[in-house]
Design a protein around this nucleic acid. Structure first.
Lengths: 203, 203, 203, 203
DNA sequence: CATGAATGAGCTTTCATTCAT
DNA sequence: CATGAATGAAAGCTCATTCAT
C-alpha cells in the first residue's frame, strides 16, 4: 500500500518533471530544435523513459498546455467573478493574464512562439486562445448590458482586437527578456480598449 | 547582347522561382519542416542548384522578406502620403496592410508563423514589425498634433496595441484559410483603435 | 556485476572494433577516401553508432594513434633501457620499430601515408615522429658521452637523417605488400648509420 | 599562320597555367581537398575548360610531375656528369635536389605529401623516387669502383637509406614553411652518408 | 518500470562532371 | 574552343524511436 502510494507519487513526479523539463528546453531552443535527449537530461531520466509517459515530443507540449490551461482559466474565472462591473472584470482578466505569464516566463516563451502558428505543433495551444476569446466575449456582452460598452460592435473582430493587443504586449516583454514589469501594462491596456486612442472630439 | 539579356532573365527567373517555391513550401510545411529537396522540386530545379543562389534554407526566407519588405513599405508610404488627416492615414495604412497580406496568402502564412518567434529564423521578419511600428508612431504623433488623438498615451504601448490587434486579425484570416474578405476588417479596426469599445458614458 | 562486466566489455569491444575497422578501411582506401559507411560495415555496426564513440572520421585516426603511440613507446623504452651501449640501444630501437610495423601492417600503411603531411588530418600522427626523434637524440647524446658517436654532429639533422632512412625502409616494405622480412633490415641500417657508406680511406 | 601560332601558344599557355594552378592549389589545400573550381579560378579559366586539357584532378597531378621529372633529372644528370669523383657526384646530386625543391616550394609541398603513399593519386610521383634511386645506385657503384665506397653494402637498402634521409630533411623544411636555407643541408648530409655518425673507434 | 546503446531514415551540403550556348 | 550553370550522386551527421537487459 505504502509502496503503491510512493510509486504513484514517483510516477506522478517523473511525469511532471518531464513536462517541466520539456518546457524549459522548448523555451531554451524552440520546440523544433529541442531534442528528446536534452529533455531527458534536463528531467534526469533516460531517453527511453520519455516514451513511457509521452507519445513523442509534440505530446509533451500538448499535455503541458492542456494541464496549464485548466489552472490558468480557473484563476481567470475567480478573478472575473469577484469583480463588479465589466470594466473591473476586464481589468482583472488582463491583469491576471499578464501575471500568469510573468510568473512563468518559460511557459510564456513557448506559448508566444507556438501560438499563432499555422503549423502549430499542438492544437492545445490554439485551444487556449479560443477559450480566452470566449471569456472576452462574455465580459463584453455583460458590459453591453451594463451600458459600459457600446452595442454597435462586431464581436468576432473585437475579440481578436483585444487578444492580439495583449498578446503583442506579452511577446514584446518576452523578447525583452522580461526586463520590466509586465503587469503594469494591464491598466493602460484596458484604458485603450475602452476609450481608444481618439481625443473624443470627432464624434 | 540578346544572349546576355536572355541569360540574365533566366538567371533572375531561377532565383525568383526558388524564392517563390521556398515561400510556398514554408507555407505548406513550416520553415523548419521544409526540406531543400521539396523546395527544389517545387522550383523545378536540382537540389544543388539551390546552393548556387542561396546560402541555405534560412537565407531563402531572409532574402524573401528583405525584398518584399521594401515593396510593401513603399506601398504603405504612398498610401499614407496621399491621405489628409491622421484618421485617413490610419485607415489607409491598415487597409493597405490587409490588402498586401490578402494578395499573397503564402507570404502571410509564413510571416504570421515566423514573426514573434523568439527563435526567429530570420531577423528580417522582426525588422518588418519594427518598421511597421515606426509608421504607426509617425501617424499617432501627427494625429496628436491635429487634435484627433489624445495626448496622454504611452506610445510604446500604443504601437504594440495596434500592431498586435491587426496581426491577430490577419492570423485569424490565415488560419481560416482565407475564406472571407480580410480588407473589410480595416475600417472597423480603425474605429476600434480610435473610439475604443467604450460607450463613452464613463468619462 | 556480471552484467556490468559484460556491458563494459561489450562497450570496450565495440569501441575497439570501430577503431580497428577504421584502420583497416584507412589502409584499404586511404583516410580521405574512406567513408563512415564503409567503416561501419567493416565494424559490423550502424553508421550512427560510429558517432556514439567518435566525434568523426579524423577522431578515429587520432584516437588510434594516440593509443598505439603509448604502447609502442613503452616497448621502445623497455628495449632501450635493457641495453648497455648506445650502439646496442640503437639496434634495439630500430629492431623494435620495424617489429611493431611488421606486426601491424595496416597501421604501417596508414602511418606511412599520413605522417609528414602538411595537411595532416590528425596531429597525433606527427606527434609520434616527434617523440621518436627525441629518443634518437637521447641515444646519440649517450653515444657521444661513451665515445661511440662523434661529437661534430648537427643533431637536428642527424635525427632527420635517421628517422627518414628508417621510414623509407618501412615505406618500401609497405609498398612491396610485406613480401619480405622487415626486421632483418635493422642491423644493416644501424651499421649504415654508424659507419656510413664510406670506405674509410678518405679521412 | 600567325594566328595558328598564337593559338598554339595560347593553348600551351592555358595548359601550363592550369598545371601550375593545380600545384598551387594542391599545395594550399592538399590534393584531396582541392577542388576543380578553385584550380580553375586560380588559373583564370572556366571549370569546364579544365576538362578540355585534363582528364580529371589526378591527371593534373600526373602531368605535372611527368613534365617536371624530365626537367629535374636533366639537371641532375648535368650536375653529376660535370663532377669527377663519386663523392663530388654525390654532393652535386644532393645539392641539386635540395635546390630544385627550394626553388619551387609548392612542388615540394605536394611531392612530400603525395610520394610514399600506397594510395598515390598519381603513380608518376612514385616513379620519380624510383628514378632517383637509380641515380644513387649508379653513383654508389662508381664510388665502389673508385674505392671511395665500401663494397659490403646491400645496395637496395642503401638507396632507401639515402633517399629517405634526404626526403625527411626536405619534409622538415617544408613543414617549417621554408624558413631556413635548405641547400646548406647538402654537405652535412653527404658527410653523414659517407662517414656515418660513428667515431670510428669501433672498427 | 527504467535504461541507454543501437539503429537507420532523413536531411544538408559539396563538388566532379556535363553540355547547351 | 571556352564557358559556367546545372546536375545529382555521394558523403557526413543528427536524432526520434526501439528494445534487450
Amino acid at each position: 500500500m505504502r509502496e503503491v502510494l510512493i510509486s504513484r507519487i514517483d510516477k506522478q513526479d517523473k511525469y511532471q518533471r518531464i513536462l517541466q523539463a520539456g518546457i524549459t528546453v522548448f523555451a531554451r531552443r524552440g520546440v523544433f530544435r529541442a531534442t528528446i535527449s536534452e529533455i531527458a537530461r534536463e528531467a534526469g531520466v533516460a531517453d527511453g523513459t520519455i516514451y513511457l509517459y509521452f507519445k513523442n515530443k509534440d505530446d509533451i507540449l500538448a499535455r503541458f498546455f492542456e494541464a496549464r490551461a485548466d489552472d490558468i482559466f480557473l484563476r481567470f474565472r475567480k478573478a472575473i467573478d469577484g469583480a463588479g462591473t465589466a470594466r473591473e472584470k476586464f481589468a482583472r482578466l488582463i491583469t491576471c493574464h499578464l501575471e500568469a505569464f510573468q510568473e512563468d516566463r518559460e511557459m510564456a516563451v513557448v506559448f508566444q512562439a507556438e501560438s499563432r502558428k499555422i503549423h502549430a505543433m499542438a492544437e492545445q495551444v490554439n485551444a487556449i486562445s479560443s477559450r480566452y476569446r470566449e471569456l472576452i466575449a462574455e465580459i463584453i456582452e455583460e458590459g453591453q448590458a451594463e451600458g459600459l460598452i457600446r452595442k454597435d460592435l462586431y464581436l468576432a473582430l473585437v475579440k481578436r482586437f483585444i487578444l492580439g493587443a495583449v498578446d503583442e504586449v506579452v511577446s514584446t516583454w518576452v523578447l525583452a527578456e522580461g526586463k520590466y514589469d509586465l503587469v503594469s501594462m494591464a491598466d493602460p491596456l484596458v484604458d485603450l480598449f475602452i476609450r481608444g486612442i481618439g481625443a473624443g472630439s470627432e464624434d
